[in-house]
Write a protein that binds this DNA or RNA. Structure first.
Length: 120
DNA sequence: CGGGTGACAACGT
DNA sequence: AACGTTGCCACCC
């Protein structure tokens, strides 16, 4: 839909990504790759990271609900950001050990989509 | 145009 | 489980 100027396209991508991130339910989490897919941008996990980094200081987002593949914390272990993310997740009932988020019993299951796609 | 980089992912060893 | 590789994509020099 609509205009196809290079910058407006970039803007649309950003919007789609932010929307996908905001849609992650409290107490759940999703990987960069999954956020990208939900935003209609399969294969652009890195873009998700880029957008989050740029939006960090300008927009309020549940950024802590975005993890690396399989629940891995993307920030360096022990870094300020990593601890902050783990603390925020913990407050929502999502526990982590080391730099890895543990699966939450009933609530979040970021695996379901993959499970369906990959018949696991 | 070419090379380096990064809040990534998948695969192999 | 921990790395190293390769594929990707957008950006910046």
């Amino acid at each position: 839909m609509t205009p196809r100027s290079p910058q407006s396209e970039a803007k649309q991508r950003t919007t789609a990504i932010l929307r996908a991130v905001r849609a992650i339910q409290r107490g759940t989490f999703a990987s960069y790759g999954e956020v990208a897919r939900r935003a209609g941008l399969p294969g652009r996990a890195r873009l998700v990271g880029t957008v989050l980094r740029e939006s960090a200081s300008s927009v309020k987002l549940p950024w802590h609900r975005v993890t690396g593949a399989g629940g891995r914390i993307a920030f360096p272990a022990g870094s300020r950001s990593a601890r902050e993310q783990i603390r925020r997740l913990d407050r929502e009932g999502v526990k982590a050990r080391g730099n890895r988020v543990l699966q939450k019993p009933a609530a979040s299951s970021p695996r379901t989509l993959d499970a369906l796609l990959w018949k696991m």
